[in-house]
Design a binder for these strands. Structure first.
Lengths: 229, 229
DNA sequence: GCAAAAGTGTTTCTCGTACACCCATGG
DNA sequence: CCATGGGTGTACGAGAAACACTTTTGC
């Protein structure tokens, strides 16, 4: 081994911003820390990257350990490396963001988390480390990306109503959308499968339920299609 | 210190994809490695992150040391962390991409680089490590970003002709653009300063020279303006 | 006077936007 | 029968796309 690999090494962690949609309210998942530093404070789920796993594997493992969540949409966000971002030693954090179908998903706190809970996006406790900055970066990314890639569906149940889809965009983009124009646009893409089902037992006309047609989307992308809301 | 900081630590490097525009041809900057592994092979400029510098500082320092370039547009790209991406030990690389005004910029090889040179984007030597993957990621990012942010100007001299600007977009986006429509669109944004100067000594009608109006762009962004080509 | 690049307007068509009423269902 | 959310069409205007000729300059 040459000299170069013997530079002092920073610690490397992954941290995850997990978004969920709860009856039209955008939420994030936080864990209460069991360990120092910031013991007892709320923070993003995350932890140290092990030598035998990739960064994404580390993120998925930590999410599973601390919150019980698995199989969710996960994408790398940004790597945070300010020298003093951890009060004890040099720690570089590779941040990810995740989207989860909240309805019917139970949380389980364990690992380095004392407690796990969902918080409303604009009403959450103060966060440990520079996690507030990570969160802001994730929100910006989500708002930017949701318009150009069909990732919003990751926040909805597999079968959903058009009004749920519209509401999702309204919440994420923070602006009202016109119902007829929204429906016209989304339907014209031809990416929704009409399941033939409707909602049940509602005190008004029952809505049709749709599914996102992932296979068709991927075929269209190959032909140069660009999703855009 | 708690147990957690005593996990084995990976090495952390930064690697930079440096783009330049040379008479209408998109180029990247490579260095020939002085050290093992991959000694004598071409690679992206980069190196180990030191404990007392941030990631971006590390990227700028390595670029300065290995190529002599400073003060260029630099933005974080992606972090590569496959377990076996370095044959010797675990190395996580935070990749950046940079844009440089090539005309009038001289290179200087030093540091861990035996030699430094520009290569045409689609005709370059095989690269060390997973640097080919990093390069492809950078190209995709550049193509995606150049249409929505005025970063193309970073590749042109401070004063430029409209035809140079159009040519830049044609090269990066890999498609021909209509001259009249391009000029109409770019001029309608009101972000170009007419310097009153023209090119000199050319065997045809002399072109007007423009500068990008960064201050005005930033003011417009604050009012919700979106750059788009 | 010719080669070479600069510069310039109009028409057509697509797509985004604005906008209001009837329908189905449960209580 | 009423409250609640579901579902539908059209007219207008802005901006994208297509397209060809004249101007300036050096040699």
């Amino acid at each position: 081994m040459t000299y170069s690999y013997e530079f002092p090494r920073p610690s490397v962690t992954v941290d995850c911003v997990v978004f969920g949609l709860d009856e039209g309210d955008l939420k994030i998942l936080l864990v209460k820390r069991l360990l120092e530093p910031f013991r007892g404070q709320w923070a993003l789920p995350g932890g140290f990257v092990r030598m035998e796993e990739s960064l994404e594997e580390a993120a998925r493992r930590e999410l599973e350990e601390e919150t019980g969540l698995s199989d969710l949409f996960l994408e790398q966000l940004f790597t945070f490396g300010r020298v003093d971002r951890d009060p004890r030693t040099r720690v570089i954090s590779v941040a990810y963001y995740a989207l989860v179908k909240m309805q019917g998903t139970a949380l389980r706190a364990s690992g380095d988390a004392e407690e796990t809970a969902w918080f409303s996006l604009r009403n959450h406790p103060q966060l440990a480390f520079d996690h507030h900055e990570i969160l802001e970066t994730a929100i910006t990314r989500l708002k930017g990306k949701v318009r150009y890639q069909p990732i919003g569906f990751e926040l909805l149940p597999t079968r959903f109503k058009l009004s749920q889809l519209q509401h999702l965009y309204e919440v994420v983009l923070e602006k009202k959308l016109d119902k007829r124009n929204f429906r016209k646009k989304i339907q014209s893409m031809g990416l929704l499968i009409d399941t033939g089902e409707t909602e049940k037992q509602v005190a008004h006309r029952a809505a049709k339920l749709y599914e996102f047609d992932r296979a068709k989307y991927e075929a269209l992308v190959d032909r140069g299609f660009n999703f855009e809301i």
